[in-house]
Design a protein around this nucleic acid. Structure first.
Length: 227
DNA sequence: GCGACAG
DNA sequence: ATCTTGTCGC
């Protein structure tokens, strides 16, 4: 898959911040034109023992959700985990996985925020720009924003507010489970993102592609680390 | 100054 | 995120 080469990962926090502010101007939150046939999920597993990241991308067809392709990659981590700068830690290895993938997915789901980020540049938005594909941020916990209690039943969703605007949604993908935090990444609207998330997250709390990628990345880590 | 803080 | 045992509920 062809990637846009604007990589700039070996930076300090100050440079990373200004880079995010610059990239934010290029994010497009607009309607996704065209039909969706394939959806990918991407995730990274980290090993403190070897300071390595193990990444996986799983592509599934939609709406059947059968696996079409899965790719992995491994590499050393150079950037520390700092809230707000996850991209600089995980995007390099993710870009490597995407460079090896055959199928170009119509949408990609990431384990992290989209525009629900201090500078509107969560990892889903960041990756969306580089991949030039519609992306959605699907996080397990909140980074920023406020919201009202989410009704306990599947399908419930409340807006995620930040500075008097809606940056995402907090949703209940399954009755009785902890809610997840959805935000548009790039080239998609929150409304469309929510439909896709509810369509792909039926059996489990997380959307199938994300869950599959998470599982595969973990599998790879355990194979390499032998534990 | 203090608390919050994706993975 | 990772590490880690038992335990509660459908």
């Amino acid at each position: 898959m062809k990637l846009i080469s604007l990589h700039q990962w070996n930076v300090d926090l100050s440079t990373a911040k200004s880079l995010q502010e610059k990239l934010r101007e290029r994010i497009e939150i607009r309607r996704f034109d065209g039909s969706i046939h394939s959806i990918a999920g991407a995730d990274v597993s980290y090993s403190a023992a070897t300071s390595s990241n193990y990444a996986a991308v799983v592509v599934m067809n939609y709406p059947e959700m059968d696996e079409l392709e899965s790719i992995t990659a491994a590499g050393r981590v150079s950037f520390p985990y700092v809230p707000g700068y996850l991209s600089f830690r995980e995007a390099p290895i993710l870009l490597e996985v995407f460079s090896k993938i055959k199928t170009r997915p119509d949408v990609v789901l990431f384990d992290g925020q989209g525009i629900a980020h201090p500078r509107g540049m969560g990892i889903a938005s960041h990756m969306g720009l580089f991949l030039d594909i519609p992306t959605i941020g699907c996080a397990k916990t909140r980074l920023i924003g406020t919201y009202e209690p989410v009704p306990v039943h599947r399908g419930a969703h409340v807006p995620l507010w930040y500075h008097d605007s809606i940056i995402g949604a907090v949703i209940r993908s399954r009755t009785g489970v902890k809610p997840i935090y959805i935000s548009a990444g790039h080239k998609i609207t929150l409304h469309e993102a929510l439909k896709i998330i509810f369509d792909t997250a039926n059996r489990y709390r997380l959307p199938e592609p994300v869950r599959a990628a998470h599982h595969l990345a973990n599998q790879l880590r355990m194979k390499y680390e032998r534990k």
